[in-house]
Nucleic acid binder design. Structure first.
Lengths: 337, 337
DNA sequence: CTCATTTGCACAATCGGTTGTGCAATAGGG
DNA sequence: CCCTATTGCACAACCGATTGTGCAAATGAG
């Protein structure tokens, strides 16, 4: 008893009276190719199970330079990304691989080093969700020949799957406008676009869709209506508060650009009396289950996270060229209270 | 140019004109111990950076049997667990390790095999959050000498950090009762406990705290008041709906046992007229930011996820014996609308 | 100038799998 | 009975880092 509690193919080999290579072949199913007799293979498998053998994955990965790990990089764990993460985990597992989820807090440097780390782990593939510098990351992966795909935030150099933000925003805006007419607010009352980052394609596209819908309705859009400053929650609270001060009340409609901005905005809205709130038509580009149960109606656009992830897998597995695939979001109109 | 794009210590060694062992020592800072001259070490480090060297982590882990990975096992990505995951990631990173987050969907078999997988990756430590079969998992880890700690769901065999559910539930219940008296509902009106799983300690303790508060207030508790059937969202919708039918209306108060149950319950509540809702005092054992912005007041108990995780790290790092540490949750009383 | 230290590094074993190759023993054909 | 094919497996070379050990050269003491 020299080795305490070691459980390697060498130990199995010794117990069975076979060579390590034979054990290896038996255990990973290549024994037919290697002309190992069925009797030997079965005995090895039996003994391995008996002793609770499980392969040292570093050793395997070191030799094969394939780890069986598939990574998902995302900014943080919030409602939207968590949904993505859940679907991702299931899909990866269904393929017999191991899902690894890492957050990089929208920090390009963090993204870079994390990818470097993952490469050092011989990761098999990487999903980038909502990353800040897609092109850099794609180049980094290409240099190491790592299959990768972008979700939510597109990349010009790699296959990408994103929500059709332009169309979605257009539909949501039209829904807001319709609510305003129901509410009977005057035509001079207009809609403000709140939150996000216009340097990012997703926000830029939503702004475009918003503009188009507004333009179709009233024939012009004032740049001052677009308050796309950041995704930060606290910033959103400040923005809506300032807007309220400036206008001397809420505008006719609000286009809210993500769940974090939604939360931030709500913090301020919660301080207002009921009648002011119901006089404002609100739409949110993201889905919050509780959003339909607030003191005032909210239209929501739900991104199809499951579809996004599944399409991403499809692109990855077909080794697609750098295409951009669009997934339509779903409108959840406000329930009338 | 025989090796294309390889970047190992052997390649660096060749370029510098040193041996691989010297390169290794220089790169991981042990060169003083190994009496490598500063000049050599610096040159090696320089060349390594120049060529963007990064160590093959499988090889390192294979040799040292330490991976630098720290895992977090949790049931799913929801609001509560996502918060935990965020703090966990930060703390792990701050220690120079790599956080790995895996969901096991409350499935004991999945938990078992996942831990086995992690062991095969020579994981350095495991955090178990809300796992279903803590003792089995702890035994599994102990057999492989893997440091581990339990959060949210305690384990008799390992250090654990949990919210003080009993005290928290007691306080929340008292707050609900106080609201009821404000609302002026009669003393015969009582509070119902909704959702959860009484076979789990967390729910059991909350039920205990609930009972104690009720008992102190009205002197008796009817077992029929405890509707702790499951954490499932859809089940919660059914439960509250059935209760409504049975009573012919809402009870005086509701103790809601988690955010998922909250969401399920709200689905039904949303269908009710405003006055029925405001006549019911509602408390939720979990924090939902939007919960304070609903059409009716909700008291919430917020678990201190950051504290939970930090204490867990502390226990892990001091190699604590199997103690059970309690963290007090915070009451977020309903804002009056 | 000699001998004992110390300095500076190279060698080689090792971690635990995977995989190309080679060599007996058996089977099969004539 | 001999010769070729096939079967069944063992050997050994990796993968890339870590680490105990050993040995030459440089240094220093006397």
């Amino acid at each position: 008893m020299k080795k305490i509690q070691k459980n390697t193919i060498y130990d199995i080999a010794e117990r069975v009276g076979a060579s390590p290579s034979t054990v290896s072949a038996a255990l990973n199913g290549t024994w037919k190719k290697r002309r190992i007799s069925a009797a030997t293979a079965e005995k090895i498998i039996e003994v391995a199970r008996e002793h609770g053998y499980s392969a040292n994955l570093q050793a395997r990965a070191l030799r094969t330079s394939r780890s069986g790990l598939v990574a998902l990089l995302m900014p943080e764990h919030n409602r939207f990304f968590s949904n993505i993460a859940n679907t991702f985990s299931r899909e990866v597992r269904a393929r017999g691989q191991c899902p690894v989820i890492i957050t990089t807090e929208r920090n390009p440097e963090e993204e870079r080093t994390t990818v470097a780390d993952l490469m050092a782990w011989s990761i098999d593939a990487i999903f980038f969700v909502g990353t800040v510098s897609p092109e850099d990351l794609s180049r980094q992966c290409q240099a190491a020949h790592i299959p990768h795909v972008f979700v939510d935030q597109p990349c010009a150099l790699a296959p990408s799957v994103v929500t059709d933000n332009r169309t979605g925003a257009n539909i949501l805006t039209r829904e807001i406008i319709r609510s305003m007419s129901h509410l009977g607010t005057g035509p001079q009352d207009t809609v403000y676009f709140l939150g996000g980052d216009q340097s990012l394609p997703s926000t830029a596209n939503r702004v475009e869709g918003f503009r188009a819908a507004m333009y179709a309705h009233v024939g012009q859009v004032d740049p001052a209506q677009i308050l796309a400053t950041s995704y930060d929650m606290d910033a959103a609270t400040d923005t809506i508060s300032a807007l309220y001060q400036r206008l001397g009340g809420l505008p006719g409609g609000l286009f809210i650009n993500s769940d974090s901005v939604f939360e931030g905005t709500l913090r301020f809205l919660a301080t207002l009396p009921q009648d002011e709130l119901t006089a404002c038509a609100i739409g949110c580009f993201d889905y919050e289950p509780l959003g339909q149960l607030l003191r005032f109606p909210v239209h929501m656009m739900r991104q199809r996270h499951q579809m996004l992830v599944q399409r991403a897998f499809a692109l990855l597995e077909t080794q697609s060229p750098p295409v951009l695939e669009m997934v339509q979001p779903e409108l959840y109109p406000a329930t009338q209270l």
